[in-house]
Write a protein that binds this DNA or RNA. Structure first.
Lengths: 209, 209
DNA sequence: GTCTATAAATGGATAGAC
DNA sequence: GTCTATCCATTTATAGAC
């Protein structure tokens, strides 16, 4: 059990694992796209296999169920979110950090890379709840956003009429805001204009100032 | 073809039609609830039949497909929305009318009576697009909200930094805002508090004032 | 128009050869 | 680990008796 006697793994093993990882990344990318496009219920495992270009049975060697497949995609975006937070310049004002997060969230959604969860009580919800990687990421993100929310309310830049949890959920909801899709379908604005508009309605509010 | 020669229908016929209508109302109510609870893809026709208490084949005598079933439910809520608009006191300020609509929308959702559409490109979308009752209702609602939005921007009570269409879609999005469900799941607030909070974030915005 | 029974197709998951 | 072939449950939809 002493790690001192363990040699580093031979190159061949590492290479194989890299291939394995690359394959799984390709799978997850396909899942992510389909999950964003049609949601968990409408997505079929056959579609995923077809998009990746492998047999369905091969998929099941990597992931043991459809829920597992979707959960892996959710974990991936959650890790992307954590990485995004890590790269933020925390010397900025908390309110600006929160705005950056909201904007990033919407950019990911417009890029078709934000998997959409099923409406409420689904098998996927349960799979995510017991997925430690997902829950860890979620709690990490929530903790950091929560701290910025409290700081921004303390310095007077964030609306104090809202409890922090309502602000947190409002920011999370930008990840699946249908207004982005509606506006894009209307065809009258560019993606960056769309994001600006939703940012305005989210932070300025509908009331005049 | 002259209507003058047509007698009014016998009472028996009217009674039968009433029964027929009542049955269809029960069906639609069940569809509405299931659609709100699990969405179109996860809802099965078997469930609907079971909830209504009739055989599945009987369902198909009333509605020719699952899409038809869902479309009928969507039409029903659209008509409810039109009726709600009809009963508003239009002597109130436009901004207050818009707020009343937003609040009503969220109340319906929290009551579990707001059917949730599938994410994007579904068979249901197509069925709705060619459903004249639905499209008529949608346009009627949009026209009236649009007029109030322009009036509210003109009188300076509604944010002028947003194009009317963005405001309209933002109001529509309250019908499926996941924040309501998140907050309810957190269990820390009553339904009316939840609605007040989302109203605040929607109209006041996240920025402090 | 309601029922039972069933067709027809789909989708999640696995067996077993290589 | 990848494939082909298949199992089995579910689901949409219909047939046909009453």
């Amino acid at each position: 059990m002493s790690s001192a006697v363990l040699k580093s793994p031979p190159a061949k093993r590492s290479f194989r694992e890299q291939m394995h990882q690359a394959r799984e990344d390709a799978i997850i990318q396909a899942v992510n796209r389909l999950l964003a496009e049609k949601g968990f219920d409408a997505m079929t495992v056959d579609e995923v296999a077809a998009e990746v270009g492998i047999a369905k049975a091969s998929l099941y060697k990597h992931f043991s169920s459809k829920e597992d497949l979707a959960a892996a995609a959710m974990v991936k975006v959650m890790l992307r979110a954590v990485a995004f937070l890590d790269n933020l310049d925390t010397s900025e004002r908390p309110i600006d950090l929160l705005k950056a997060v909201a904007r990033w969230t919407m950019e990911v959604q417009l890029a078709g890379e934000m998997p959409s969860l099923p409406s409420e009580n689904s098998a996927l919800r349960g799979a995510l709840m017991v997925n430690t990687a997902y829950m860890d990421g979620l709690m990490q993100v929530s903790d950091r956003l929560g701290a910025w929310i409290e700081a921004a309310q303390a310095d007077g830049s964030l609306n104090r009429n809202l409890p922090p949890i309502a602000v947190l959920y409002t920011l999370y909801a930008r990840a699946c805001d249908p207004v982005l899709g509606f506006l894009r379908a209307s065809g009258t604005h560019s993606d960056s204009e769309i994001i600006d508009m939703v940012m305005t309605s989210c932070f300025e509010g509908l009331n005049a100032r």
